[in-house]
């Protein structure tokens, strides 16, 4: 197989529209995957854009106690605040710009609900939840909880109109502070109108962009269609860089995600993502028996 030129710019493989659905106790999400069109994006299992939703006092809802096993959940907030509690004893309030990287591993029960401030006063909730798969040998690792407030998550910008928050990986010479089990890039870019940026993404990584707001082109080919809000842009693995350009008249905000594919058999049911059907059935049995844990504080 011919080696890939790491200086080459990746082409766009295709674009997927996200679907709108309801999660937890009834909050709206935009979901590029899993959908009927795209069930996963190895090593990523799910991406949900929560909101943006404006709640009146007393209206906001979240996802009360529920389990996970076999992967990691990553929550990144843009607006509003969520309260997290889990069966390992962790507690946190996630505010705009903060990131929570929770390795469920062998199993965690957690709750993700609007903070008291949002519940009492109302307000906007907007954020992301990403599920990152774990390889078979790490699916039953002990749970791990990492939480970083906004001022501890590195950001960088340049004079060309590019701003980036580095959740995982590297951009504009700035490195993430979060430890990941698998090699992952997770970047939130905002490009001003007319701005363009080349970002290194190793060719062996699967990579995509998810547009939050604005319009942009994600290839150097000017015939490539522009993408907008709610679009997932899938990159081919034919290069080691991706090119993003704001083609609109307002800021282009998007996530750029990449990861080394795990390439393993997968069996999933709801919040359990394992390698075999038997392992999923065991997870459900363990949860029903209380062996995954309970939140008791």
């Amino acid at each position: 197989m011919k080696p890939v030129d790491e200086t080459a710019i990746r082409s766009v493989m295709g674009t997927v529209d996200s679907v709108r659905t309801i999660e937890g106790d009834g909050f709206a999400v935009r979901r590029p995957f899993p959908t009927e069109q795209l069930a996963m994006y190895d090593p990523f299992l799910l991406l949900d854009e929560m909101g943006p939703t404006d709640y009146a006092p007393g209206e906001a809802v979240g996802a009360p106690d529920h389990p996970h096993r076999g992967f990691e959940t990553v929550t990144y907030m843009l607006d509003g605040s969520f309260q997290h509690k889990d069966s390992a004893g962790n507690f946190g309030i996630l505010t705009p710009g903060s990131v929570q990287w929770m390795t469920a591993g062998s199993g965690v029960v957690h709750s993700e609900v609007p903070s008291e401030a949002i519940l009492q006063n109302g307000g906007r909730l907007h954020g992301f939840q990403l599920w990152v798969n774990l390889p078979a040998v790490e699916k039953m690792v002990p749970p791990r909880y990492q939480e970083f407030p906004a001022d501890e998550v590195p950001v960088a910008s340049n004079e060309a109109g590019v701003w980036v928050r580095v959740i995982a990986g590297e951009a504009l010479g700035v490195y993430a502070v979060i430890n990941t089990h698998t090699p992952v890039i997770y970047l939130h870019f905002i490009l001003q109108p007319g701005a363009s940026h080349l970002q290194r993404v190793p060719s062996e990584y699967n990579a995509f962009a998810y547009v939050i707001e604005g319009r942009g082109r994600f290839a150097t080919d000017e015939e490539e269609e522009e993408s907008g809000e709610g679009n997932l842009v899938a990159f081919d693995q034919d290069g080691g860089q991706v090119c993003m350009t704001n083609t609109g008249d307002r800021p282009l905000s998007f996530l750029l995600l990449g990861g080394l594919p795990i390439n393993e058999q997968l069996a999933r049911y709801g919040p359990f993502v394992m390698n075999t059907k038997e392992e999923v059935l065991q997870a459900i049995e363990d949860y029903d028996a209380g062996r995954i844990g309970v939140i008791d504080f």
């Binding site: 659905t21 309801i22 937890g24 959908t35 529920h66 389990p67 899938a234 058999q265 997968l266 919040p271």
Partner: peptide, 24 residues
């Protein structure tokens, strides 16, 4: 439940358009 060396699983996923975070 698959084995794949490709980036995507194109299977229509039964749980794709419903609440799956807490589907227990």
């Amino acid at each position: 439940e698959h084995s794949s060396n490709k980036p995507f699983c194109g299977k229509t996923h039964a749980a794709s358009a419903q609440a799956i975070w807490g589907l227990v």
